[in-house]
Simulated scan of single mutants.
Amino acid sequence: PETSTSYQIGYQGQLSDTVNLTVNGFYNEIDDLIQTDEDNASFEGNIAIYKYMNVDSAKTYGGDIGIDWQVDERAKLQASYAYLKTHNNVTDTELTYKPNHKAMLALDYQLNDKLQLIPRLNYESKQLISTSEQAYSPSWWTLDSKLNYDATANLSLYAAINNIFDVQRDITDTSDYRPIDNREWLLGASYHW
């Protein structure tokens, strides 16, 4: 079984009437870390079959920051960034499937009293997938957008496009772990009574 000793510190507060801030930091010492590695996988064609393995000794550290800013009565901006550094103490390499950087930027904009636009930009840095080959999956950006319409006091409609730029993994490249889903168009409704 995996065991760890963790140290964490964080702050959450309201910097002003319009700005909220969250900051967290952490450090973990881990024994017998349970993880997957492409080195421990078998392949049937392009399908990888993974087995869990233990890393005798590892450490992780990093932090994250998040800001919510009510720009004005119509617009709210949200931003977050997370940093993660990992170390396999046995192989002196990074740990697999742990990107160093993740970021998100979203705007919640009220176009009028019935219509709301919510674009969201996401980023994830490259990540190690094979310790022995030092193979990395590429970094990626995605952009999603959603439009909400309050048709009545009880009925809401929405239209959304996820992954607008159609960022998708190359299934012929076993080192590519970008998103599986391609561009997605959604229409929906919800009724409240």
Rank of each mutant, 00 (worst) to 15 (best):
T3S: 09
Q8H: 04
I9P: 00
I9A: 15
I9G: 14
V23F: 05
V23A: 11
N24L: 02
N24A: 02
N24H: 03
F26V: 11
I34S: 00
D39Y: 10
S42M: 01
G45N: 05
G45R: 05
N46H: 11
I49C: 00
N54A: 09
D56I: 12
T60I: 09
G63L: 05
W69C: 08
W69K: 08
R74E: 07
A79F: 14
A82W: 00
L84N: 10
K85R: 11
H87S: 06
V90P: 09
L95V: 08
T96N: 10
T96R: 08
K98Y: 11
K98T: 14
N100R: 12
H101F: 03
K102I: 12
M104D: 05
A106G: 15
D108T: 04
D108C: 01
Q110D: 07
L117F: 11
S125V: 12
I129C: 01
I129E: 00
S132A: 13
E133P: 02
Q134R: 10
L143Q: 05
L143G: 02
Y149M: 04
N154K: 15
L155C: 01
L157T: 03
I161N: 01
I161V: 14
N162I: 01
N162Q: 08
N163W: 08
I164F: 10
V167E: 14
Q168P: 01
R169M: 08
T172F: 06
T174G: 00
Y177E: 00
R178T: 15
I180H: 01
D181E: 13
N182A: 14
N182L: 03
E184D: 08
L186S: 05
G188I: 05
S190N: 15
